[in-house]
Simulated assay, not measured.
Amino acid sequence: MSADSSPTPKHEVETFPAYEGRMHYIEGYTPVSLGAPHSSLERTATWAGMGFLLVGLVGIGMVLYGLATSLWGGDENSNFFMIAGAIVAVVICGGGLILINRGRQHYKKYRRETGRSH
């Protein structure tokens, strides 16, 4: 028996070029959301931004409290609560939206490069 007639097939090593800063996947492969390097779910900025949006609800609650006490009486500081609540809501929710946008930048880059949307 010759050395070339081995029962196991010979496999050639196939390599794919790695481009720095560019998403590169094998054609036909769709990465899962959590395990992909472009995933927004693994970014701290995304989760911190969602936390900021939830905290921003405090400002909206302050506006509603100020509005209710202004309409039905009971508190002389209703204008303060409405103004302070609006400022808190805009600043904190705005910061949250900026953080979420920053956390999703890798996914947006992936969509631009591959044309995939999932």
Rank of each mutant, 00 (worst) to 15 (best):
F52D: 10
V91P: 01
M62G: 11
T30K: 04
I87P: 04
T46H: 08
L54P: 06
K10M: 04
P31F: 01
F16K: 06
T44I: 07
V58E: 05
E42K: 13
I92G: 12
D4A: 10
T8E: 12
R43C: 13
W72R: 14
S78T: 15
P9K: 10
T44E: 15
G51R: 12
Y65R: 14
E20T: 02
V32S: 13
R43G: 11
S70V: 06
E12N: 02
L99D: 15
L53E: 14
R112P: 01
A86V: 02
D4P: 10
I26E: 11
M62D: 15
G59C: 09
P37A: 15
K10Y: 07
G96R: 03
I83F: 09
R102Y: 12
H118W: 06
E27A: 01
F16I: 05
S39G: 05
S33L: 08
G96I: 00
G35R: 09
N101H: 06
R111W: 03
S70W: 04
R116H: 08
N101V: 01
I83W: 03
L54M: 08
L64W: 15
G74F: 12
Y107S: 07
A84D: 14
V63I: 10
T44Y: 06
A36H: 09
G115D: 09
T30Q: 07
V91K: 03
I60C: 14
M82K: 13
Y65M: 12
I100M: 09
T69Q: 06
L54R: 08
P9Y: 12
P9M: 11
S6D: 14
E14W: 06
S78H: 08
Y65N: 14
N79M: 12
G21C: 05
A86N: 04
L53I: 08
G94W: 09
L67N: 08
E42R: 05
N77R: 11
I98E: 00
R22M: 10
G96N: 01
R104Q: 11
F81E: 00
V91Y: 00
A18K: 01
G49Q: 09
S6R: 03
